[in-house]
Amino acid sequence: MNLFRSEEHARRWPSFQAKAEHGFITLGQLAGFFGTETRRHMLDADYLSTWFPRRGAERRAYLERIGKTTPFWLGTPDP
């Protein structure tokens, strides 16, 4: 999970996987994806027991909202 100067730079990267052509995400979307509610409680005393367990559903909901619904993004098995 890397940051590149542009999509062209990512495609030129020798380790770029052909299957990862749809692995791009804008910086704004990324900030949203990693800025959902649970992320704002990482310093709370009950983060591990209360907030972290909610993270998976929250991530999935965000990905669906921005249209990233493939197994590649959702972490579900390939069809």
Binding site: L3, A10, A20, T76, P77
Partner: peptide, 11 residues
């Protein structure tokens, strides 16, 4: 133009 890229997929 900075972008994020996921190279292997989650899971």
């Amino acid at each position: 133009g900075v972008v994020g890229h996921l190279n292997y997929g989650f899971g």
